[in-house]
């Protein structure tokens, strides 16, 4: 059927950066996501809030297919994630195709997950050289510029374990940016940091938001959400409970569960 075109180039439909439709995910008998509907538009910063175990991180991992969803669908710029349509049927993507989809979606993890056997520069250059086939000299140039941007140019030759947690997380951000992602996912990027190191990472993220990067952020930093987010989404027990501007959700929460959650931060 020709009317079923799903590409972003279709003039009839302009796709948001992310469109999640009725996303369900279960681990064994536990249903972690119970039908998530969410859209993130290009250039938007969306912060996902919620108690631990509410499914925020799982949802984030479904967006770049680190977890395969059980039902529903996730589209990124109109491209179905993890699956492929063929006529009226839907097929699982081959590993190679799934890998390809992740190239344009950057991700920053709670525990940084830098490659400890490579220098800071090596970490940032690895994917552009290995995945995109970028010439080493050019990748090096880009990497140094990105390290400059996160304030760590002088640490290029250090190994990750020689850096503080905040510095490691900023390297991880530079590493993700090196792939020129159209979307960045942040999975509790400051939760593993000592309190005095949180600020430097949030400052780096704030810069990225101002530069117009589309970001989906799972965090417990209410202050960051208030200041940077275009939209705050509150999740509880695998569902989106409330969604709106920071003022709406953080200052005048309509839902009692949101109120109960936020009261713990006051």
């Amino acid at each position: 059927m020709t009317t079923m075109t799903t590409k972003a180039t279709d003039p009839a439909t302009t796709w948001p950066m992310v469109r999640a439709h009725q996303v369900h995910k279960r681990f064994g008998h536990v249903e972690v996501l119970k039908g998530i509907d969410l859209e993130v538009h290009s250039g938007e910063v969306v912060v996902l809030l919620g108690p631990s175990g509410s499914g925020k991180s799982t949802f984030l991992r479904c967006v770049n297919n680190l977890e395969r969803i059980d039902s529903g669908s996730v589209h990124v710029e109109g491209e179905l994630i993890g699956f492929r349509r063929a006529g009226s049927r839907v097929h699982h993507l081959r590993p190679r195709e799934a890998t390809r989809q992740r190239r344009d979606i950057g991700m920053v993890f709670q525990h940084f997950n830098l490659f400890p056997h490579q220098t800071v520069l090596g970490n940032v250059m690895e994917a552009p050289v290995g995945v995109l086939g970028m010439p080493k000299a050019k990748a090096r140039e880009t990497a140094l510029r990105l390290l400059e941007q996160v304030g760590l140019a002088e640490k290029a030759d250090a190994y990750p374990r020689q850096l503080s947690g905040g510095q490691q997380q900023r390297v991880a951000i530079a590493r993700a940016l090196a792939m020129r992602p159209k979307l960045m996912l942040f999975d509790e990027p400051t939760s593993a940091l000592d309190p005095e190191l949180v600020g430097e990472v949030l400052a780096t993220m704030r810069d990225l938001a101002r530069a117009g990067l589309t970001m989906l952020v799972v965090t417990h930093e209410i202050g960051f959400a208030r200041e940077v987010a275009d939209r705050v989404v509150f999740m509880d027990d695998g569902r989106i409970v409330e969604s709106g501007t920071p003022e709406e959700v953080l200052d005048n929460p309509a839902n009692p569960r949101t109120r109960a959650f936020l009261s713990r931060f006051l």
């Binding site: 190679r96 997950n113 490659f115 690895e126 994917a127 290995g130």
Partner: peptide, 23 residues
């Protein structure tokens, strides 16, 4: 090797063979 290493490499768009060999 911590599973986070494989995840971070996957998130960067690296394939399974490359992750094994390089990471």
């Amino acid at each position: 090797v911590d599973h986070g290493q494989t995840e971070a490499a996957s998130a960067l768009g690296m394939g399974r063979a490359r992750i094994l060999r390089r990471i």
